[in-house]
Design a protein around this nucleic acid. Structure first.
Lengths: 337, 337
DNA sequence: GGAGTTCACTAAACCGGTTCAGTCAAGGGG
DNA sequence: CCCCTTGACTGAACCGGTTTAGTGAACTCC
């Protein structure tokens, strides 16, 4: 039982393929009566357009690509990507676009994937995440001519359309809040130093500390894993003049840090305040629940997808700034003892 | 600057399109000298096959579909899916297959997505997850005739190829271990009752308890969120004859349960032993680190993908049993006080 | 009432590959 | 020396749509 084609419909309706094509695509060129008849037949025999045939005529592939370049074991850890993906999807599926996903090992492999997808006509565009400082992907993608939206700060996006949030503002809000509580020694456990948003947060952290007259708080870089978060915390808490507050770049490290503090018989929040970047259910189930920098990640993804679809449709669009992370205070922060 | 086609190559090489096609696909019909010349030209002008054109000839779409039917906010919580996806991908990308991903709201939407993907020739097959009891998707997918691999117990997979692990054995191992430690009152905080693997674990739990002469331990069903895990734990720990050990169906609930116990001034593991299903970095960063049922989720996904690719290639394959979860003991379990 | 316009529709080309049926020349066997 | 096979290659059909050029009839308008 072959899949029905427009030729089948044409035969049954006693018209030409062309007429069927017009009817099915809502184009002028057929009478309303004929159109209705054709639609009825198409519906009855369960016809579906063959995207391959459509794509062959230069039509859209109706898919966009996303290649994630982090080791699988790190990916599972952070809810970020899954939430991002569901946000992207919400926007895409509303327009019947599919998402092509691939997990790759490095940027070279990632570019290979994009080149293949684009070259084979599989995707109409892509979303670039985890921007690096001087990211080699940016010029390469620019050269390919593929519509691309970048998740990250405009300063790193070259001529590509960036969708971004003002992390500096979030850092400022956090540090100012901790200082208002009375903290003077604040540390930051950051993610991968080569990621551009890490650099931006690092700088903002240093700037805000300086602006408030604090001595520059220590920054420790990690790979986002709980182990490194724990190690960093241990180091910070063992140092002379240890911090009374630590801001972590993700939730898993914050939880690990919380455990380390408790192991070291430090009370959270009395002896140490803890702030995590990005809220997740995890932050609310630990004791004390974590004060977090909350942002709407699905919305972030949705905005990126929307921007990309516009770009694919030929609508020129520039930078889009989404709402920055906001501080949600819970039990893990308090004035220092 | 149009994308180069085989016609361009043919013109430059002074041969016909057919010859180019043979050469590029490693088929007989051209001399080695000509083949080399054609390949060189193809390479030089950067030719890529247009999958749409290939697909039109009845070739594979070189993509498989995965529709996830859980609310976005639950998806982000569990590392399970991200790990599963990276496992699937590892296998797919080795064979240059792409993964089409969509997050859907309910089973009806999910079937709609599969029908569309399959009808449009976008995918060559799909992976079905989160099997329900009497899952309506199974007969519907069977009727579609699409190659499908099911992640779940054969008893629920109908005529579809199941890839599954023996959860009963894992439950047995866990309960026997807890009983050997001296526990007599063991409870289970389970996931969604309509999922078939929940039912299987429930039954196994009851059977093993009965077999060991324990009175049937209480089972509380939840939606996998930390809140419900916490509520369930609170209820269990407040009941007369409260359990001395609780087995949770995922990590986030176990962590929530751990917090609840600590809030109630119960020491883990002295007053309460905690076991989580599925290891994740999270389980190792909390204090005490959690005893868990570990399984290799990426391998699970990889096996499913492999089975699906075989099915697409027309290789008949039957049920595949992967290694069951194994108990990894950490600090959260001990003999009852 | 003849020219021009619009409408509804058809036939055929086209997209970029694959594949089948031939063609033609070289080589081998009897 | 001729027939037969084999190898290398060509030309054209084909996949399932879209799109363009064209056709015939009805309708409008002066």
């Amino acid at each position: 039982m072959r899949r029905p084609t427009i030729a089948d419909i044409a035969r049954q309706a006693g018209v030409s393929k062309g007429a069927v094509s017009y009817a099915l695509n809502g184009q002028p060129g057929v009478s309303e009566a004929t159109r209705a008849r054709i639609l009825a037949i198409a519906n009855e025999i369960g016809w579906r357009p063959n995207i391959a045939a459509r794509a062959l005529n230069g039509a859209r592939a109706h898919a966009v690509g996303l290649a994630l370049c982090r080791p699988a074991r790190f990916l599972g850890v952070e809810p970020f990507f899954m939430e991002l993906i569901s946000g992207i999807e919400a926007e895409l599926s509303a327009r019947s676009y599919a998402l092509l996903l691939q997990v790759v090992g490095d940027h070279e492999a990632e570019m290979g994937v994009y080149r293949r997808w684009w070259g084979e006509g599989r995707v109409d565009g892509a979303i670039l995440v985890d921007l690096h400082l001087d990211d080699p992907r940016v010029p390469q993608v620019e050269e390919m001519g593929m519509p691309v939206v970048v998740l990250g700060h405009p300063s790193a996006a070259g001529s590509l359309v960036p969708v971004w949030a003002d992390d500096s503002a979030a850092v400022r809000e956090t540090v100012e809040y901790l200082v208002a509580l009375g903290h003077r020694r604040i540390a930051r456990v950051a993610g991968l130093p080569r990621l551009s948003h890490t650099a931006i947060r690092d700088r903002a952290f240093a700037d805000v500390c300086a602006g408030l007259g604090l001595e520059a708080g220590p920054i420790v870089h990690t790979d986002y894993t709980g182990e490194e978060g724990a190690r960093a915390t241990r180091r910070l808490l063992s140092s002379p003049g240890r911090p009374t507050a630590i801001v972590f770049d993700n939730d898993i490290m914050a939880v690990a840090g919380l455990s380390v503090a408790q192991e070291m018989r430090l009370d959270v929040p009395a002896d140490l305040s803890v702030v995590a970047w990005d809220d997740s259910p995890l932050c609310q189930v630990v004791r004390p629940p974590l004060t977090v920098l909350t942002r709407d990640i699905p919305a972030y993804g949705a905005h990126a997808a929307q921007r990309l679809l516009a770009l694919i449709d030929g609508v020129e669009s520039r930078s889009l700034e989404v709402r920055a992370s906001r501080l949600t205070t819970r039990g893990s922060t308090a004035p220092p003892a």
